[in-house]
Measured scan of single mutants.
Amino acid sequence: DTLHVTQDGKHIELRGLSEEEIKLVEELLRRGRKVEEALKIIEELRK
C-alpha cells in the first residue's frame, strides 16, 4: 500500500508498506517522529 505524508512542507509518498506498517508509521508521526526515523524503524522491524 501507499501512504501519503506531508512533512516540513514536503509531500512524501511511501510505497510498498503493509497495512500494519502504515499504521505504525502513522502512529510514529503522530508522536512527533520524522518520516526518515519512522522508515528506519520499519526497516529494522523487517529484518
Rank of each mutant, 00 (worst) to 15 (best):
D1W: 01
D1F: 06
D1C: 06
D1G: 15
D1T: 07
T2V: 14
T2P: 08
T2C: 09
T2E: 07
L3S: 08
L3Y: 02
L3E: 06
H4Y: 02
H4K: 05
V5F: 02
V5R: 01
V5H: 05
V5T: 07
T6P: 06
T6M: 14
T6E: 12
T6K: 03
Q7A: 06
Q7W: 01
Q7C: 05
Q7F: 01
Q7D: 08
Q7H: 07
Q7N: 07
D8H: 02
D8F: 01
D8I: 03
G9K: 02
G9C: 03
G9D: 08
G9W: 01
G9H: 06
K10C: 06
K10L: 14
K10W: 09
K10F: 10
H11M: 07
H11P: 10
I12H: 14
I12V: 11
I12A: 04
E13M: 08
E13C: 06
E13A: 08
E13P: 03
L14V: 12
L14H: 03
L14C: 06
L14D: 04
R15M: 11
R15H: 13
R15F: 15
R15V: 13
G16E: 09
G16Q: 06
G16K: 03
G16I: 02
G16A: 03
G16W: 06
L17V: 02
L17C: 01
L17P: 00
L17A: 03
L17S: 00
S18N: 10
S18H: 06
S18A: 08
S18Y: 06
S18D: 08
E19Q: 15
E19C: 10
E19G: 12
E19I: 14
E19M: 13
E19S: 14
E19D: 12
E19Y: 14
E20W: 13
E20P: 10
E21P: 00
E21A: 02
E21Y: 03
E21W: 03
E21C: 02
I22R: 12
I22Y: 10
I22V: 10
I22M: 12
I22Q: 10
I22A: 12
I22G: 08
K23T: 11
K23Y: 11
K23I: 12
K23W: 11
K23A: 14
K23N: 09
K23M: 12
K23C: 06
K23G: 10
L24K: 06
L24R: 06
L24H: 07
V25S: 01
V25Y: 05
V25E: 00
V25C: 06
E26V: 15
E26L: 15
E26C: 15
E26D: 08
E26I: 15
E27W: 15
E27F: 15
E27R: 14
E27I: 14
E27S: 14
E27M: 15
L28Q: 03
L28H: 04
L28A: 05
L28S: 03
L28C: 01
L28P: 00
L29P: 00
L29H: 01
L29K: 01
L29S: 01
R30S: 10
R30M: 12
R30K: 10
R31A: 13
R31P: 01
R31M: 13
R31D: 04
G32I: 01
G32K: 05
G32T: 01
G32P: 01
G32Q: 02
R33T: 14
R33P: 01
R33S: 11
R33F: 15
K34Q: 08
K34R: 14
K34D: 08
V35C: 01
V35A: 06
V35K: 02
V35L: 11
V35S: 02
V35Y: 04
V35Q: 02
E36V: 10
E36N: 09
E36I: 11
E36D: 11
E36K: 09
E36W: 15
E37N: 05
E37Q: 10
A38Y: 03
A38C: 07
L39S: 02
L39T: 04
L39G: 01
L39I: 13
L39D: 00
L39P: 00
K40Y: 12
K40G: 09
K40F: 13
K40I: 11
I41K: 07
I41Y: 12
I41F: 12
I41C: 04
I41G: 02
I41W: 10
I42D: 00
I42R: 00
I42Q: 00
I42L: 09
I42W: 01
E43P: 00
E43V: 09
E43Y: 15
E43Q: 09
E43N: 09
E44S: 09
E44D: 12
E44G: 08
E44V: 10
E44P: 00
E44Q: 11
E44N: 09
L45G: 07
L45D: 04
L45Q: 09
L45Y: 11
L45T: 07
L45I: 12
L45V: 06
R46H: 04
R46N: 04
R46V: 03
R46L: 03
R46D: 01
R46A: 04
R46K: 05
K47E: 10
K47D: 09
K47P: 05
K47R: 12
K47F: 14
K47H: 13
